[in-house]
């Protein structure tokens, strides 16, 4: 199903035959097989309860699979992950720059030694001048930008995003979608992006993995071949409509299966 271009990318991690059962009987994931390649912008798209967040938590190492394995290319190192949650999840008592410093700080790096990286991350999300602000002084969209800066400041191999823009208004969301793509162009990271919005997934990703619920499983994959960088005009192009239609159809099937 994968297009040739993407198959040529070196693999970053592979999830094989993953099963996850909660409390003995709730099957969150059944036989999940997924290969993530370097440079992928991969969306996990599906209805609530399809296990997309569970998959993310498995990759993050917050939970372990009941069976199956997750193999990182070259083994899992300590700088493999950056995470953006649905909420900005900033420390309210810390200034913006200190929030972004956190991943370094937890690795024992002084602020002085990583100041340039912190500033560059803030510049990338356009918030350099807010470095000394407290989170409460920022709008929802700006907080999310800080959260993104924190996720990418260490330049991890993979950035996990769990419905990061779901709580934002449409206009802010579109703006952040565009900025996220620009960011990715700038630093070339791999992203796994969980969403339940078809349109968001089509605009952002080159791979959309569609999942169904009860039990959580992958039912198909849609490739969006439109080249990056993608402008706003992409949203009105026939390619966009075709991919959205394909993903929607698959999603509808997912919902029917579940019902």
């Amino acid at each position: 199903m994968q297009s040739k271009v993407k198959a040529a990318r070196p693999q970053l991690l592979r999830m094989s035959h993953i099963e996850k059962t909660f409390r003995g009987d709730v099957v969150a994931l059944r036989n999940l097989n997924l290969a993530v390649n370097q440079g992928d912008f991969l969306s996990l798209l599906g209805p609530s309860g399809c296990g997309k967040s569970t998959a993310l938590r498995l990759i993050a190492g917050l939970i372990t699979p009941t069976s199956g394995s997750i193999d990182w290319q070259g083994g899992k190192g300590d700088n493999d992950l950056g995470v953006v949650f649905q909420e900005p999840t900033l420390m309210p008592w810390a200034k913006v720059k200190d929030n972004v410093w956190l991943p370094f700080r937890l690795r024992g790096k002084s602020y002085g030694s990583v100041k340039d990286d912190v500033m560059q991350a803030l510049r990338l999300v356009g918030l350099e001048e807010f470095q000394n602000a407290y989170p409460r002084e920022l709008s929802g969209g700006m907080k999310m930008r800080v959260s993104i800066a924190r996720a990418l400041v260490t330049r991890p191999r993979l950035i996990l995003m769990d419905e990061p823009f779901a709580a934002l208004d449409e206009i802010t969301r579109h703006k952040l979608n565009k900025d996220l793509l620009a960011l990715r162009e700038a630093i070339g990271c791999t992203v796994i992006f969980v969403t339940h919005s078809v349109f968001e997934s089509v605009f952002l990703s080159d791979r959309i993995v569609v999942m169904a619920a009860r039990p959580g499983r992958i039912i198909g994959e849609v490739n969006v071949d439109a080249p990056y960088p993608r402008a706003d005009s992409f949203r009105t192009s026939p390619d966009y409509a075709a991919s959205a239609a394909e993903a929607s159809k698959m999603l509808t099937r997912a919902m029917e299966d579940a019902a």
Binding site: G61, L62, T89
Partner: peptide, 11 residues
């Protein structure tokens, strides 16, 4: 979520 983040960063 912050607790999770700390865990992910191996705090």
């Amino acid at each position: 979520n912050l607790q999770d983040l700390f865990k992910i960063y191996g705090a």
